[in-house]
Structure formats: C-alpha cells, structure tokens
C-alpha cells in the first residue's frame, strides 16, 4: 500500500524541526531512518499530516565521549553503533547486541534513537538504553530536557515524548574495562525481532559480582530492568546455585504476553533458559577481566 498524502518538511536544524512539529498541531511525525515509520505509513496505520525529515540536520550523526558517558546522536545508524571503535572500547556488549538487529540494508538507515522512540517491546535498543541508564535528550520550543530511559519508555510503542518534541541524542553509561557481559536472544530467524532476549553486565571484584545490571525484552509491554534479579546476583560468587536462584526470580518478575509466536508460559521458560546462559557468560568474562 501507499501512504496517505502529507506535507513534507526537510528540517535544516533542530529548531526548525520542533517549529514544524509545533505548527502541525500534533499531526506531525519525525522521520529518521524510516525503517519502522515507513512500513506503518505504507499500511496507513500512521497518517501524519506533516512529515518532518531530520536526516539533513548537521551534527546529529556522531557518537561522542562526554565525560563518563557516550552520547549517541539522533542520526547514528545501526551500522555505526555496531562497528564504532569508541563503542567497542567502552561497551563491547553493545557491539555484540547490535549484531542481532535487523539486516545490513536496514542497519544502513535505521537509527538507535529512532528505535528508542518507536519503543517496540521486542527491540534491542530500548533494552540497551535501560541497561545503560540512558538519558534521552529531548528538544522542544521550551528548550531541552533530559528524560531517564525508565521514564521515557512507558509501554508498547508509547513514550513520554510530547507532540512538539524531538529526540536529539541519548547519553549512555560507559562500563569500566573488564566488565563482564552476557547477551542471548532467541529469534525465529537471525536478524528478525526476538521472542525474548536477556542481557547482563557485572564487574568481578574480590571474587564477587558487583554493579550487576540485568535487562530483558520481548517478555512484557516494554523492555525492562529487573532489580530483584540484580539483587540476587549482587555481591555473590555466581555459581550454579546462585544462577538457579536468579533465574527463578526472573521467571517470577516478568509478565510475558501470549501471541502467535509463543505463549506466555513458553516465553517465561525461554527467558529463564537464556538468562542462565547470560549470567554464566557474564560471570566468566568478569573473572577473565572482561576479555571479549
């Protein structure tokens, strides 16, 4: 199918983009990579009256080190996130995760920030933004605000973004060198949206797991951190007993939905199986000093 008719604005600056969104009176939409928006427009599930193209705004296509954080601009494509050496140095876990996102042609266009704005519960970027305590930088005619990832991702396809706001970039934690990580996902075909995924990071200090972070996706209305599971691992020697306890906790904490790809019970079981592998891998890497 084809999209319904709309007006097109090619913004040359963030100010121009938010001005166009404002004057559209809530009927405007930002287009970044278009890899989620265009399918929805082709199906006429989304019918903006004004499309605000941010692709030519200079300066948004960079990954920058800002103090302890990495700033991922609104035009950083999946291809860049998957291969950028700065990310490789600070966040090898993100490189590993990005290998599972879509296919090379989609990765050439799709953006990290666009995925977080789209807020698909089975998308990797919202999960990683939660894991890395992301701060979503939002611009509007009222100026800029920074929204914590957990306050930004409200539920399936729903964020805290107002009608006249756009995201300019997302700041992510860097992890100390040697941080252990694990990531597992199950998709019916490599590169497709996953049925479930689990990611964890932990530092190994004095024989114990420290600063443990655990996030999941595909098993609820939005990706989420699991504080109870993190607590079950924090300060522990992560042996098989501890892992079994954490897995049990995880299965209790998540609320998966049933759909044609799998029942809630199946997803709960799957997430636990993936989690055990993830905790083992993260612990092993943490002890090896995180060598990839």
């Amino acid at each position: 199918m084809k999209p319904v008719a709309f007006d097109y604005v090619r913004a040359q600056s963030v100010a121009e983009a938010v001005a166009a969104l404002t004057s559209s009176g809530g009927e405007g939409k930002v287009i970044a990579g278009g890899q989620s928006l265009m399918p929805m427009m082709n199906f006429r599930m989304v019918r903006p009256s004004v499309l605000v193209d941010i692709n030519r705004i200079p300066g948004l296509d960079r990954i920058e080190e800002r103090g302890e954080r990495l700033h991922v601009g609104a035009l950083v494509r999946h291809r860049m996130t998957a291969s950028d050496p700065v990310i490789g140095r600070h966040l090898p876990v993100l490189h590993a995760v990005m290998e599972n996102v879509a296919h090379l042609t989609v990765r050439n266009r799709g953006t990290f920030c666009g995925s977080v704005c789209h807020a698909d519960p089975a998308a990797e970027m919202p999960m990683m933004t939660l894991l890395l305590n992301g701060g979503v930088h939002v611009a509007s005619p009222r100026g800029e605000r920074v929204v914590a990832a957990r306050d930004f991702l409200l539920s399936s396809l729903t964020t805290a973004l107002e009608e006249d706001e756009m995201v300019t970039g997302i700041a992510l934690d860097t992890l100390p060198p040697g941080t252990g990580w694990g990531f597992e996902e199950f998709a019916r075909r490599h590169g497709d949206y996953a049925l479930a995924a689990v990611v964890a990071t932990m530092e190994g200090r004095d024989g114990c797991a420290r600063n443990v972070r655990v996030a999941v996706m595909g098993v609820g209305d939005t990706a989420t951190r699991l504080p109870g599971v993190e607590a079950a691992l924090e300060g522990q020697r992560v042996d098989e007993d501890v892992i079994a306890g954490a897995v049990e906790r995880l299965r209790a904490e998540i609320e998966p939905n049933s759909d044609l790809n799998g029942s809630a019970d199946y997803r709960r079981h799957l997430a636990g199986v993936l989690a055990a592998r993830v905790f083992r891998a993260a612990w092993t890497r943490a002890q090896e000093g995180g060598a990839a």
């Binding site: 265009m38 193209d53 042609t105």
Partner: peptide
C-alpha cells in the same frame, strides 16, 4: 550503501 526503496520517499533523496 544499500537501502530499501520502499521505505524511502523520493523527496528525501533530492
């Protein structure tokens, strides 16, 4: 670079 032409608008590639 490869791109899906069905997910790209003609006006975008000016």
């Amino acid at each position: 670079r490869s791109a899906r032409s069905c997910l790209t608008l003609a006006v975008q590639v000016d």
